[in-house]
Simulated assay, not measured.
Amino acid sequence: MAHPKETREKLRGLYVSGKQTLETAAMICQIPFATARNWKRAALEKGDDWDKLRAAYTLAGGGIEDLSRAMLAGFLVQYNSTMTMLQDATTEDLRPSERAKLLSALADAFTKTVAANARVMPETSKLATALEVLEMLAVFVQEKHPAHLGAFVEVLEPFGAQVEQKFG
């Protein structure tokens, strides 16, 4: 089925500057993901590198942390897709030993990606750590000093906003 040129341009715009994954952009444009992937590959062969342009837009719009978030989000989409594929594969498609190797490699890639992302995005990593500590403190106060829980919650809410402002 031939699609109008406008659909291809819309897909490109959603992916390059619209911060959408290729999968999401394809759904928005109501085209198969395979078609979107083919259009992207064809554009690259003609010198139109959508990924380079996407990275440039991301950097121009918010710096390395936004790019890192986008890369992590893209990885997580691929991770989820791969996990679904592995879960759906039968033993005829994939021997148990192959499945174990793939799961191990996927877990390793996840660990490395998250660790690299934490190094690139120290503020986001600090925010996550700070919020986790606040949650731990809330549980501690609730379990060990329940009489003080009301005062703690009263202080926690405005302090949580300050933590988000500093690290968010």
Rank of each mutant, 00 (worst) to 15 (best):
A2Y: 05
H3R: 13
P4L: 05
E9L: 14
E9D: 15
E9T: 10
K10M: 13
K10S: 11
K10L: 15
L11R: 05
R12I: 06
R12G: 04
G13A: 15
G13W: 07
L14W: 01
L14V: 02
S17I: 06
G18V: 10
K19N: 12
T21A: 04
T21S: 15
L22D: 03
T24V: 11
A25E: 00
I28E: 08
I28V: 15
Q30T: 08
Q30H: 12
Q30D: 14
I31F: 02
P32Q: 10
F33C: 00
T35I: 04
A36T: 01
A36N: 06
A36R: 01
R37M: 10
N38L: 10
W39K: 06
R41C: 03
R41N: 13
R41Q: 13
A42W: 06
A43F: 00
G47S: 07
G47N: 05
D48L: 02
D48V: 06
W50V: 07
D51Y: 09
K52N: 10
L53T: 01
L53W: 06
A56S: 10
A56H: 07
Y57P: 00
T58E: 08
L59T: 00
A60N: 06
A60C: 02
G62N: 02
D66V: 13
L67M: 12
L67Y: 01
S68H: 05
M71N: 09
M71R: 13
F75H: 02
V77G: 02
Y79S: 01
S81E: 11
M83N: 14
L86N: 01
L86W: 03
L86I: 11
L86H: 03
L86K: 01
Q87V: 03
Q87N: 14
T91F: 04
T91Y: 06
T91H: 07
E92C: 04
D93I: 04
D93N: 14
R95K: 14
R95V: 10
R95S: 15
S97A: 13
R99E: 12
L102F: 10
S104C: 08
A105N: 10
A107Y: 06
D108G: 08
F110C: 03
K112A: 04
K112L: 09
T113W: 00
V114G: 00
A118Y: 02
T124I: 05
K126T: 13
K126S: 14
K126I: 09
L127G: 03
L127Y: 02
A128F: 06
T129I: 05
T129S: 06
L131T: 05
E132A: 15
V133S: 05
L137I: 15
A138N: 09
V139K: 12
F140Q: 09
V141R: 00
V141H: 01
Q142H: 12
E143Y: 03
K144R: 13
K144A: 13
H145E: 12
H145I: 05
A147W: 00
L149E: 11
G150A: 15
V153L: 12
E157I: 11
P158W: 08
F159R: 03
G160F: 00
A161F: 01
A161T: 11
Q162H: 13
Q165H: 12
Q165N: 12
Q165I: 04
F167N: 09
F167H: 15
G168I: 03
